[in-house]
Amino acid sequence: MYHLITELLLKVDRVLAAIDSNGKDKEELLELKSELHSYSGKVFGLVDISIREGLRQRGITLIKNVYTGFDTEYKKLNTKYNKILSAQ
């Protein structure tokens, strides 16, 4: 089933590409192009998520890590409390 849907998506996108390269300025094709765009989006939504992953426009992910070594010094006041002296 997903195989057929993906094939359908390919056909729609091919027609769109053909319109873009040959007749994008022709007014009579504008409506068809708009309909096909909408149709392409709908068909894309029907494709299995694993295939959709392969069709997505992908970008870069930047992970910015901050590393902090944290320590405190303290003075033991009694069995229950400490007094903090420094944090670094």
Partner: peptide, 18 residues
Amino acid sequence: SLTTRRVFYLIGHLTQAD
């Protein structure tokens, strides 16, 4: 497309004390 994710690592020794 550029997605930025930020992670702050707080590293201690015997963190229950600090």
